[in-house]
C-alpha cells in the first residue's frame, strides 16, 4: 500500500474513525448491520468526521484567504475584460469567504469600482459553488476524480454564466445607488499572528453557524442510508428516470445550506444508487442558489438580471447533472 493511499484512507476518509465508531456501536450492544445500529454508526461517524475536516479546512483556507481580502481581489480584477477576466474571477471566487451573506457587499463594491458585470457574476457564481473546502470534502467522501470533476464543472458554469451575462448587456439592470457607492481601499498589512487569529476566528464563527445544518444534513443522510428502501429512492431519483436531475435541482434551489450540510445527504443518495449527476445537481442547486440569497440580490439588481442569473445557473446545473449521469460509470 502506497503512502498516498494510506494518507487518503486514514487522514481524509478517516477509516480509523469508522472502525472506532463501529466498535463503539457494538459496545453499546447494537449490531452495526442493523437499522438502528447502522443509523447510529452513520450519524456519529459522519458528524465527527465533518467537524474535524471542517475545522482543519476552514483554518487552513482562512489563513490563505487573509492574503486575498475583497479589496485586493477587486484590484486584481480591475481593468480586465474578456474571457480571461471571467476565468480569473471564477478562480478568485474559490478562495473567498464561505458565507453567501457576504456576496452582496462584494457585488456592490465590485460594481461600484467599474468591474464588468460579467466578471462580477463569474465571481459571484463560483464563490458559493466551488471552494477549496468542498474539494477536500468531496475527495474524503467520494474520490479525488469526483472532487476534481466537481471543481472543473463548477468553474465552467461560473465562466460561461458570467460571460453570457456580460454579453446580454444588462449594466442598466443594476439598482442605481450601487454606482454611487464610494470606492475605498483597506489597509491589508497583517502580521502572521493576526492571520492566525483571523483563521481561528473564522473556524469558531463558521462552525458556530453551520452546526445545525450539519446535524440536519447528517440526520437526513442517516435516515436515507438505513431506513428508506432502495426501491423507493430509485423510483424517485433512479438513473433511468429522466426527471431525476430536474427534481433534484428544483428541490435544491430554495434550500439554504452549505456544502457541509449537503454532503452527507449526497453520500447517502449515491449509496442508494442515485446517479452522480443527480447528486451533484442537488448539491450545486443548494449551494449556488437559495431563496435568502436571491431575496438579498433582488435589492441590488432589477428583475430581468435576477431572472437571467437564476436561469443561467439553473440551466448550467441541469446540463452538468445530465452530463455526469451519462458518464457516471467512469467514476464509480
Amino acid at each position: 500500500m502506497s503512502i498516498f493511499s494510506w494518507m487518503n484512507d486514514q487522514l481524509l476518509r478517516m477509516q480509523w474513525l469508522s472502525g472506532l465508531v463501529t466498535a463503539g456501536v457494538r459496545g453499546l450492544g447494537l449490531d452495526p448491520a442493523s437499522r438502528i445500529g447502522g443509523s447510529v454508526q452513520f450519524f456519529v461517524y459522519d458528524v465527527v468526521k465533518i467537524f474535524i475536516l471542517l475545522s482543519v479546512l476552514i483554518f487552513v483556507i482562512s489563513y490563505l484567504q487573509s492574503y486575498f481580502p475583497p479589496e485586493r481581489t477587486r484590484r486584481i480584477l480591475g481593468g480586465r475584460s474578456g474571457i480571461g477576466a471571467n476565468i480569473l474571477g471564477a478562480l478568485l471566487g474559490t478562495i473567498t469567504p464561505f458565507c453567501s451573506c457576504s456576496s452582496i457587499p462584494l457585488f456592490i463594491g465590485f460594481t461600484a469600482a467599474g468591474l464588468p458585470l460579467g466578471v462580477t457574476f463569474s465571481f459571484l457564481i463560483s464563490s458559493p459553488l466551488v471552494d477549496m473546502a468542498s474539494v477536500i470534502l468531496l475527495a474524503s467522501i467520494f474520490s479525488w476524480p469526483i472532487a476534481l470533476a466537481y471543481v472543473g464543472v463548477g468553474l465552467i458554469v461560473a465562466v460561461v454564466g458570467g460571460t453570457i451575462i456580460g454579453k446580454l448587456g444588462m449594466e442598466g439592470q443594476v439598482e442605481s445607488f450601487v454606482h454611487n457607492v464610494p470606492v475605498t481601499d483597506a489597509d491589508e498589512s497583517l502580521s502572521r499572528a493576526e492571520r492566525i487569529g483571523f483563521a481561528r476566528g473564522q473556524v469558531l464563527d463558521i462552525a458556530g453557524k453551520v452546526w445545525p445544518y450539519v446535524l440536519i444534513g447528517v440526520g437526513i443522510g442517516a435516515v436515507i442510508h438505513n431506513w428508506v428502501p432502495e426501491a423507493t429512492i430509485s423510483a424517485l431519483l433512479g438513473q433511468d428516470k429522466w426527471w431525476a436531475v430536474p427534481v433534484a435541482t428544483v428541490v435544491g434551489i430554495p434550500m439554504y445550506a452549505d456544502i457541509f450540510g449537503t454532503l452527507p445527504i449526497a453520500e447517502a443518495l449515491v449509496g442508494k444508487g442515485v446517479g452522480l449527476g443527480t447528486v451533484l445537481a442537488f448539491m450545486m442547486a443548494v449551494t449556488a442558489l437559495s431563496l435568502p440569497s436571491l431575496i438579498m440580490l433582488k435589492r441590488v439588481v432589477k428583475m430581468p438580471l435576477l431572472v437571467a442569473f437564476t436561469g443561467l445557473v439553473t440551466v448550467g446545473i441541469l446540463t452538468i447533472g445530465f452530463a455526469f449521469n451519462a458518464i457516471t460509470h467512469m467514476f464509480i
Binding site: P69, P70, F177, V181
Partner: peptide, 13 residues
C-alpha cells in the same frame, strides 16, 4: 442595512 453599509465603501464586515 447592507445598502447603508456599502454606502461607506465597505466590502467586509
Amino acid at each position: 442595512d447592507f445598502a447603508e453599509i456599502a454606502g461607506y465603501g465597505v466590502m467586509s464586515t
